[in-house]
Design a protein around this nucleic acid. Structure first.
Length: 615
RNA sequence: GGAGACGUGGUGUAGCUGGUCUAACAUAUGUGCCUGUCACGCACAAGAUCGCGGGUUCGAAUCCCGUCGUCUCCGCCA
């Protein structure tokens, strides 16, 4: 097929008043068609945007005849004159709204079935279900919003490369077919045809390779790299995801944090034209857990957790007193203006905290209007201003003085609702941390325009795994420990702190890293603390231990979750909206149908047999 | 591994305390009319047996069980 018309000179969305009088050739998709019987208007769309084509049967009957047959998402080429619109007909909503094109010739390059997705979205077009979007992803990606997201992603990765290149970093690729290692997430395995019964693993991260590159003397490495983890998915977790992976030699924690903060600030400045407040605040892990019940606090609103363990130690409410006596905690959050919550609302919150392991939720509502002598209320005196009545099932366990004291500690004013959890510290943190976020959302306390970054530092080196009945590395086993922790490796692993840090944005973990161990003896002691025998250590990580004996520089680094970073920059709800071809929560690809069965011949070549569902 | 929500014309929803549901609305689609629209308008038409399987019942989109799929959360994710 030879085209008379095809031969593009401009993008549709680029036309402006200055182009008036020029003859242009355009190509794109029919975004919308408005047929007035005589005149036909076509919004022609390409990556650059939209422009209106006007077909006038009186001026060009042949072009009008072709336009009559055009439908949504047809691919067409058009050539014609750019003309200025009459001032009354300018469309201020379109960048190209001052002009339109009067085609002298149009050609259909390809037709389209009626699409199952509304590419030309409007306020009255129904939102399409994600299943359909994923099945027809190529159409979904035509939507301007998705095009924006992926172009934003491109701009960010370009800016990352530019920044890191400018700071002496070298981008080096590392293997996708590598060795399975113990610790960490479940590996995706790839069978070896040449070595039947043996498997490669897809990398969970290039951790060991980037450390090897430091041993090799590259000093500053980075990579925008795919990582794979065979774990259950979430809105912000995909089985394959992309990291901005960075490693540097001869650095301390401070050097890494400062440079990476520069990087993030530059991305926001260059790509979003937003100036971030500097420096990013910092908080220790301990402080984050105490104040927010989370190692990734959302700083866009307050509602810190309040520790009342000491205040209620002697109280008559046994649930509180026993938790305090048994080494647990009693903590609370105060939901501003939530005293009006119904019993049903609070029951719902109780169910909510139970999913985090809490056994219950105690509450006190501080009424806005004082009213004397009601059943389950008691006067709370001594606070500033008018003393509000307390409505609470547990008020009867406290004297008026104790209630007044509690109210001051809570900082609760009239109309506020305090919610208490008493349990082991880990449960209290999980339940109240999640409850704080839920209430923050529900009460509209979160400033959706804000971008609040935070460095969380001084993570514990180990956490105890009930399941495995041993200590496991919180970050990874190659993380260095603070000097004062070295003697504790044997005696009190739970007290050892790591030189590890996370960058958190709006309650989402954007990235994390550490200063690594670079001495064999220290690495061996950490392996030992993890319950890895010297034999196992040599078998699994012998190459690392060996490398440490050939002049390994002190080094450290960080890895950012690129998908999450773009999600936040794009204002998307899920990383699926910033990944061209994502997978569902059951890790399948609705477009291609992966994962699929394979032929018996493929399996036998690999020395494998499929067991199917039987397991 | 566990919990919850959802599944109805091409698309998105309503209906779901069982029977005039012979399934409604919006949008999309088709046809006709319309020379200045830009979420064009008006009229008409076509289009779903209600994810799948089983059960209860005289009767099931509606109730029950199972199953599949999607989403959210807990566990998990060094």
């Amino acid at each position: 097929m030879t085209s008379e018309v095809f031969g593009r000179t401009t993008g549709c969305g680029e036309l402006r008043a200055k182009d008036v009088g020029h003859e242009v050739s355009l190509a794109g998709w029919v975004h919308r068609r408005r047929d007035h019987g005589g005149l036909i208007f076509i919004d022609l769309r390409d990556r650059s945007g939209l422009v209106q084509l006007v077909f006038n049967p009186a001026k060009n009957p042949e072009a009008h005849r072709v336009a009559d047959g055009l439908r949504s998402e047809f691919v067409v080429a058009a050539r014609g004159l750019v003309v200025a619109r009459d001032p009354a007909m300018v469309n201020p909503k379109l960048p190209t709204g001052e002009v339109e094109v009067m085609p002298s010739a149009v050609e259909v390059l390809n037709e389209s079935l009626t699409p199952p997705i509304y590419v030309a979205e409007a306020t009255d077009t129904p939102a399409v279900d994600e299943t359909t979007r994923l099945r027809y992803r190529y159409l979904d990606l035509r939507r301007p919003r998705m095009q924006r997201n992926l172009i934003l992603r491109h701009q960010v990765t370009m800016a990352v490369r530019n920044f890191l290149d400018g700071h002496g970093f070298v981008e080096i690729e590392t293997p996708m077919l590598t060795r399975s290692t113990p610790e960490g997430a479940r590996d995706y395995l790839v069978p070896s045809r040449v070595s039947p019964g043996r498997f490669y693993a897809l990398p969970q991260s290039p951790q060991l390779f980037k450390q090897m590159l430091m041993v090799s003397g590259f000093e500053r490495y980075f990579q925008i790299v795919r990582c794979f983890r065979d774990e259950d998915l979430r809105a912000d977790r995909q089985p394959e995801f992309t990291q901005i992976d960075v490693e540097m030699s001869f650095v301390k924690q401070e050097d890494v944090l400062r440079l990476m903060e520069d990087l993030v600030a530059e991305l926001y400045a260059k790509v979003l034209e937003k100036k971030l407040p500097r420096p990013f605040p910092r908080m220790t892990w301990r402080q984050a857990m105490a104040d927010y019940g989370s190692d990734k606090p959302d700083l866009r609103f307050g509602m810190k957790l309040i520790d009342l363990t000491e205040a209620v130690r002697e109280s008559g409410f046994r649930v509180f007193a026993e938790a305090a006596a048994g080494g647990g905690q009693v903590k609370a959050v105060v939901a501003p203006g939530a005293a009006s919550f119904s019993r049903k609302d609070i029951d719902g919150l109780t169910e909510f905290v139970k999913t985090y392991g809490a056994k219950g939720l105690a509450w006190m509502a501080f009424e806005a209007a004082p009213a004397a002598g009601q059943g389950a209320t008691a006067p709370a005196t001594g606070g500033p201003g008018a003393a509000p009545e307390v409505r609470s099932p547990i008020a009867k366990f406290f004297s008026p003085e104790a209630l007044a004291d509690l109210r001051i500690r809570l900082g609760a004013g009239p109309g506020d609702l305090a919610l208490f959890v008493a349990d082991k510290p880990a449960v209290v943190a999980a339940a109240l941390g999640a409850l704080r976020l839920e209430l923050g959302r529900r009460l509209n306390l979160i400033d959706r325009e804000a971008d609040r970054f935070l460095w969380v530092t001084d993570f514990p080196m180990f956490e105890y795994s009930q399941e495995e009945d041993r200590w496991v590395a919180m970050h990874h086993p190659f993380t260095s420990v603070r000097d004062e922790g070295l003697p504790l490796l044997k005696t009190d692993p739970g007290a050892v702190r790591a030189v590890a840090y996370d960058l958190v944005q709006n309650g989402i973990e954007l990235g994390g890293g550490s200063i690594r161990i670079h001495r064999r003896d220290v690495q061996e002691r950490v392996f030992d603390a993890l319950g890895l025998s010297p034999e196992e250590a040599r078998e699994k990580f012998g190459f690392l231990l060996e490398a440490f004996e050939y002049g390994t520089p002190p080094h450290g680094g960080i890895a950012f979750g690129l998908d999450r970073m773009i999600m936040l920059m794009a204002g998307a709800e899920t990383i699926r909206d910033v990944i061209a071809f994502p997978k569902t929560t059951s890790a399948s690809d609705l477009l291609t149908g992966a994962p699929s069965e394979v032929s018996g011949r493929q399996l036998s070549e690999l020395g494998l047999a499929a067991k199917g569902d039987q397991g």
